[in-house]
Write a protein that binds this DNA or RNA. Sequence first.
DNA 1: CACGAATTATTGTTGAACAATCTCCCTGGG
DNA 2: CCCAGGGAGATTGTTCAACAATAATTCGTG
Lengths: 228, 228
Amino acid sequence: MAMKAAAEFDRATAAEHAHTAVWIATVLRGRIAAGELTPGSKLSEQALSSALGVSRNTLREAFSTLAGESMVTRIPNRGVFVASPGVEEVREIYRVRRMIEPAAALWGEVTPEALDTMEAIVRRAQEARDAGSVADMADANQALHRAVVGLTGSGSLQTLMDRVLAEMRLVFHAMASTPDFHSHYVDRNVRLVERLRAGRRDEAASGLSADLDVAEAELLDRLADASG
Amino acid sequence: MAMKAAAEFDRATAAEHAHTAVWIATVLRGRIAAGELTPGSKLSEQALSSALGVSRNTLREAFSTLAGESMVTRIPNRGVFVASPGVEEVREIYRVRRMIEPAAALWGEVTPEALDTMEAIVRRAQEARDAGSVADMADANQALHRAVVGLTGSGSLQTLMDRVLAEMRLVFHAMASTPDFHSHYVDRNVRLVERLRAGRRDEAASGLSADLDVAEAELLDRLADASG
DNA sequence: CACGAATTATTGTTGAACAATCTCCCTGGG
DNA sequence: CCCAGGGAGATTGTTCAACAATAATTCGTG
């Protein structure tokens, strides 16, 4: 068909031959994370395949990938939709985090470099708070917790955490407004890193666990408000 | 083509319309777990698609799923191969297990039902040892550790653990002979469940961690022998 | 207005085709 | 004898077009 160029967009830019399906999955993942594709919205095969300039088959393969990451939900004979996490998903998110984050704090390998990285992230969060940038604060917060899991040295756990954090972003996107959720945690995060630096891992782990409890409760609260 | 029936095998038996791609993924996952498809062996698209009676496109989608579970490895323009975990993969497996299993023992919800289940599994392991059935012992061992992670109540962690255990099976399949690896752990597992029953979670967690260290060392040892 | 049936749209799956890439063998030169 | 180079053949990556199966919608009828 002569008119594939109708939606040729970039795709020549970054690493042309990244095995189209993977590339498409990356594009969609990015758009979902950016909030361009809002939770619950339908991803039509025909519309998307022509919009992205790939065949339905290739798009389908990308969908498989994203469904495996639970970024989208596939309903047989109905289509795929951007995942829209609810109360149960939030609970699951914190079940996971309450296990792997304290575990990482307790038993991970706390290197000086890791501590430096975390301190830099915490400073970034403080600056974001001072500047009143909610988005940057959210980013820094996620980056910090990601770094905590990084202490485990495990790629699988890191991947799991990335999935969880991506789902968290979806939760925020699903909420109409994003009132300041993170500023309370900037100071707590500072204390967390201090404790890790001081080698007080028990305190770091238990404090982290408590923080997660609070965050979950607060998030569930706002979710109930939004849906009630 | 009239001759699709050439390889019609069952496929009408179990839940006919399980949406072919996932059904195929299930079949392949089972064959890999059973050791029918040995680690490193190539999965030719043409051969498999005709052997399973599905189109290459559908098979491809199944491959995506399995690659996402790292049951198979995809090498661009070369094909997909049954994953063949080596030393680094074993290390990663135990990095994960050393985090989530003790975490589950420490912070999971230890219900009486869960304890009963675990005791039943442990008894099964003892019977298998008495009967000299290595395979049953391996199964029971895996089931027990799976149950430990189940204490977290988290589906994501359970899924991660399942992936890890599947990879463990691949490691065993990759070793020419499977000398008795599990009998040493039957008694340790008994003690683990006893400690959980007694509410001595710290001991359960630290003992578990030690067991995992020993198991990793032993496994790495045998791997070194096999490849040396 | 409610209800059911026909129409329409969308997904699920297949088969064939072609380009890109790899594998392997075969030949020629050192 | 060994190695480099070059095809020929096979395999994967991707697209297209078609049809079957299922869901959504529309429309006619009571």
